[in-house]
Design a protein around this nucleic acid. Structure first.
Length: 452
RNA sequence: GGCCCUAUCGUCUAAUGGUUAGGACGCCGGCUUUUCAAGCCGUUAAUCCGAGUUCGAUUCUCGGUAGGGUCACCA
């Protein structure tokens, strides 16, 4: 009475780097199998000698591992040609397929003849776990080709033989395969194989609603890895696209996804891959990284990028920055962009002032000079050690600032330190820069203003 | 074009034969004792169209429309 143990396959063809769609296919199969304590089979469908490359297979394996997926069995179709040949021969012997004599051609001095399936031309109906019954009239398929030659099986044939030999119970794949299914069922029936259960989920869409392709966005998993997406975040987003767990939670760990996975909760209509929401997921995961780990990664990137700008790197300064950096980025790449845009320059070099910007909108040049002079006096009274605490600096300045108008005082202060219209607050910057440096910059700003 | 699939805010989605059609992302606005960022609060926004069934359809049926997929000696 027990159902057969669940066995699913992840069958990419190594004709390109790991595609987001491939990752999704792998995730869905993986979740389904693990949910049912089943077996996951990775099958490299490398029967296309023209386009297939080992490096692509490697990229797919690396990318899926990166996402935290794994499998229990590994096969390559190129290593199973004997089985296809044998199956093909038996089909020909049974009279269910034939070598097409009139379509012979010469290749490398040998005659090549394609093999065609004798199509009984019936209606084929299969039950899709996601969509219900689907019926096709197969007469229009004719006696379709199943092998380039007896020694060289085509995709549909290899798939059917493999699925049977590997005892696949559930074929879960994108709905671009719906129209392939009747063809494969025909081969299956000719061979006398058992029919697996089918489930076709909708394709991932680009912003223009067509099948996600290079034109509609970045499709290589590796490029997301390179931009610094967190694998768990990427996995989570891709899994949730087109699947709503019963709990309706969005943020889920892999074990939680396995726990909740039910193939009935896969949607019927295609979902647009939205980079903004992916970024939100990633930000979410970035926030969860332990401070130490985050700091280490941030420090590495900062050192590289700051040095690249020709500035003098200081790890002491850098170490004080990553708390601030953390709330400004969604993906590691953002940190690179941030630095590349010069938004952190003033921590590692003297700012250059646009004199007219020093006063800000809330004070005139004369009053800005006055405020900066007052600030210089106030700050001079703070000890160097106390200067390490931004709250202390704030407390010292606050009285004066509220009396004179926070905007009027604080903008010139902040601008004197950063030289930028936009930056973190002056107290934070001051605490990082240290007393000596801060007083020097305030003085420079006064000088610049007075020179006008 | 044939065949097949699909159809709720801009996007991802929830729900039900009877709801003010809910949530998330984004957008916009406000608050957060200067700007930016973050955070908090809030606003805007959807059942493709037309018939039918029904007391009542977004939900069920049919038709249309739109979008997508697929039509290889690729996978």
């Amino acid at each position: 009475m027990t159902e057969r143990d669940v066995r699913v396959r992840i069958p990419p063809s190594p004709t390109g780097n790991c595609h987001v769609g491939t990752a999704r296919m792998a995730i869905i199969n993986f979740l389904f199998a693990r949910r049912h304590s089943g077996t996951v089979i990775f099958r490299s469908e490398d029967t296309d000698k023209e386009r297939g490359k080992q490096e692509f297979e490697d990229d797919i394996v690396i990318s899926l591992h990166w996402l935290g997926l794994d499998w229990d069995e590994f096969y390559r179709q190129s290593e199973r040609t004997d089985m296809y040949r044998e199956a093909l021969r038996s089909l020909i012997d049974l009279g269910k397929a034939y070598v097409s004599e009139e379509e012979s051609k010469k290749e490398a001095g040998r005659m090549i003849r394609v093999v065609r399936l004798k199509n009984p031309g019936t209606n084929v109906t299969f039950t899709d776990l996601i969509r219900g019954d689907i019926t096709f009239d197969t007469t229009e398929l004719g006696d379709f080709v199943i092998a380039r030659s007896v020694d060289d099986a085509l995709y549909h044939f290899a798939v059917v033989v493999d699925d049977a030999l590997m005892k696949i119970t559930h074929v879960i794949r994108g709905d671009d395969h719906i129209s392939n299914t009747p063809r494969q069922i025909l081969i299956q029936e000719a061979l006398g194989f058992e029919r697996p259960k089918y489930a076709h989920y909708p394709l991932l869409l680009g912003a223009d609603k067509s099948k996600l392709s290079k034109r509609t966005g970045d499709t290589a998993v590796r490029s997301y890895k390179e931009e610094g997406y967190i694998p768990e975040a990427f996995l989570n987003y891709i899994a949730i696209l087109g699947w709503t767990p019963a709990s309706q939670r969005e943020i889920l760990s892999l074990p939680e996804m396995i726990e909740e996975f039910d193939i009935k909760d896969l949607h019927k209509s295609g979902a647009v891959f939205d980079i903004e929401k992916l970024r939100w997921f990633n930000r979410n995961y970035l926030q969860k990284i332990p401070a130490e780990e985050f700091g280490q990664a941030a420090l590495g990137i900062m050192e590289e990028m700051v040095s690249e700008r020709g500035l003098k790197w200081s790890s002491g300064t850098g170490a004080q920055l990553y708390g601030m950096v953390r709330e400004r980025i969604s993906v590691w790449k953002d940190l690179r962009v941030l630095i590349d845009d010069g938004e952190l320059d003033y921590f590692f070099s003297e700012p250059r002032y646009n004199t007219i910007d020093i006063p800000g909108k809330k004070s005139a040049p004369e009053s800005a000079i006055k405020h900066l002079n007052s600030l210089r006096e106030i700050l001079a009274n703070i000890s160097e050690t106390q200067f390490r605490n931004q709250e202390t600096i704030k407390a010292s300045v606050w009285n004066y600032a509220t009396k004179e108008g926070t905007g009027a005082v604080l903008w010139p202060f902040r601008y004197a330190l950063s030289g930028l219209a936009r930056s973190p607050d002056p107290f934070f910057i001051a605490s990082v820069l240290g007393k000596e440096c801060v007083i020097k910059r305030v003085a420079s700003a006064i000088r610049a203003l007075s020179a006008v």
